[in-house]
Structures are given as C-alpha cells and as structure tokens.
Simulated assay, not measured.
Amino acid sequence: MSAIAVSAAFAIVGAESDGLRVLHYLFKPLTTLLVAAMVWRTAANEHGYRRAVLAGLLLSLLGDVFLMLPGDWFAFGLGSFLLAHLCYLRAFRLRGEWLRPIWPVLAYGVIAATVLAYLWPHLPVELKIPVVVYVVALAGMAAQAACIWRQRPDGAALLATAGGACFVLSDALLAIDRFAMAIPLASVWVLLGYWAAQWLIGASVMPVTDTSRN
C-alpha cells in the first residue's frame, strides 16, 4: 500500500509540473502496475473474480499509456478503459445477480444522464457515441458493484462499491475538465479518484465465504 501511495504521489507531482513531467510518464503506469501486483499476491478463493479484476487493471494500464502519449490518443485510451470496465462488470457479476435491487441502477443512471447532458454540447461529433457507450459501461459497472453490496453486504462488496463510485467521480472530473470547463488542479483530483478506485477494486479481491457464484 505504501509503495502504491508513493508512486501515485510522484505521478501526480509530475502531472502538475511541466519540469517534472518525466515523473508522470514513469510513475503513472507504475502505480497501476503496483495495484495489479497487489491483486496478484492477494490470497483469494474466487479465482475467476481475481482474473477479471487483473484483466481490468492491465487494460487500465494500457489506457494509462495511451492517455499520456504525445498527440491525441484519447479514443484509444477510452477504448482501453471501456474494456477494463467490462472486466470489472464481469467480476462483480460473478458475486451476485445482475443489477438487483434496482435503486443503484436508477441512481447511477441519473448521474450518468446528468453528466452526459452537461458534456454533450462540448463533445466532438466523432466522440459523442463512443462517450455514450463508455458512460453506460462505467455507470453499469458501478451500479452492479452497489447491487452486489446490497445482495451480500460484506467487506469485499463494500470495497468494490466504493471503487465504482470513485471511478465515476474521477472520470466525470476528467471529462468535464477536458471538454467543458477547466478545473483547478484537475489532474490531482482525477488521479486521486482514479487510483482510489483501482486500489479499492483491487482490495476487493479477498477470500469470501460465499463462492456459489464462481
């Protein structure tokens, strides 16, 4: 945990300082890789869940690289993170039923619709449909995590639920800052939320008593 926090701090400092940009290039992917290593070392009795979370983290690592490359690689980063969220959605499905109860679905649906409505006039035409698809996948992932917590309210489900919420917050801030309105210290808030999300989802890989879904 301490290595992840230190690596994340260096990446954030590099993102905020042009003179230290090399720190961002080195430590941004390293931080996500350290979270993946944490998951790899974690004892677990739901191996399908751990594999799906690891796949999501490695796809996120690919997205990290795309988003920090020179030039406009945003669409490639978006695609990588879309696949990562589908992996997390798969993991959460292994622990319970699809999207039940309905209230987390409705809550995240309202949040997603609100963010999309705000962003829509500012989005480039070629990104409108990809962003809609991405937001639906992101909101669905977070809602599924919350649904599992309601179905089996254990510590692992609570961590995943918090991770999903942090992902929604981080990505909303990223999109607003990129397309609609500059946010002071945006990279700080976005990256803090992002790695909180990844760590929380990674930490949800733990031995659990109910393995009937895996």
Results as ranks from 00 to 15, higher is better:
184 P>M: 04
66 F>N: 01
98 W>V: 10
147 C>P: 01
108 Y>F: 15
80 S>H: 00
152 R>Q: 15
89 L>H: 13
140 G>K: 00
110 V>L: 15
155 G>Q: 10
110 V>Q: 11
177 D>P: 01
106 L>F: 12
149 W>E: 09
142 A>S: 14
95 R>F: 06
184 P>H: 03
152 R>S: 14
76 F>M: 14
187 S>E: 12
86 L>Y: 13
139 A>D: 10
47 H>L: 12
81 F>D: 03
152 R>H: 07
51 R>E: 10
131 V>L: 11
93 R>I: 00
50 R>K: 15
179 F>Y: 15
82 L>Q: 02
64 D>A: 01
113 A>Q: 12
177 D>E: 05
154 D>G: 10
134 Y>K: 01
57 L>R: 01
176 I>S: 04
151 Q>W: 00
123 L>T: 09
169 L>V: 15
61 L>H: 06
73 W>Q: 14
122 H>R: 11
85 H>E: 01
109 G>T: 11
179 F>T: 05
170 S>H: 05
145 A>G: 12
155 G>Y: 04
136 V>W: 07
105 V>T: 15
143 A>C: 13
60 S>L: 06
110 V>A: 15
137 A>K: 09
71 G>Y: 06
87 C>K: 02
51 R>Q: 10
186 A>C: 10
180 A>K: 03
75 A>W: 08
134 Y>N: 01
45 N>I: 03
81 F>V: 08
163 G>E: 03
52 A>W: 00
145 A>P: 12
118 Y>W: 15
62 L>Q: 01
102 I>Q: 12
169 L>N: 03
167 F>A: 00
66 F>P: 05
64 D>V: 04
187 S>A: 14
153 P>Q: 10
184 P>A: 00
137 A>L: 08
93 R>K: 13
174 L>I: 09
151 Q>I: 05
170 S>I: 00
172 A>V: 06
100 R>F: 11
124 P>S: 11
157 A>R: 02
177 D>N: 15
135 V>K: 02
89 L>V: 03
128 K>V: 14
92 F>L: 09
58 L>E: 06
133 V>L: 15
184 P>W: 00
67 L>I: 08
105 V>E: 06
87 C>T: 02
89 L>A: 12
180 A>S: 14
95 R>S: 06
151 Q>P: 03
118 Y>I: 13
165 A>M: 12
127 L>Q: 09
79 G>I: 02
141 M>P: 08
185 L>F: 14
79 G>F: 01
109 G>V: 11
72 D>S: 14
61 L>F: 14
132 V>I: 14
177 D>S: 09
95 R>A: 04
152 R>V: 10
46 E>F: 03
51 R>M: 11
134 Y>I: 00
147 C>A: 15
95 R>H: 07
65 V>M: 10
96 G>S: 08
159 L>E: 08
127 L>P: 06
189 W>S: 12
150 R>L: 09
49 Y>A: 04
170 S>G: 05
176 I>G: 04
176 I>M: 06
94 L>Q: 11
157 A>E: 06
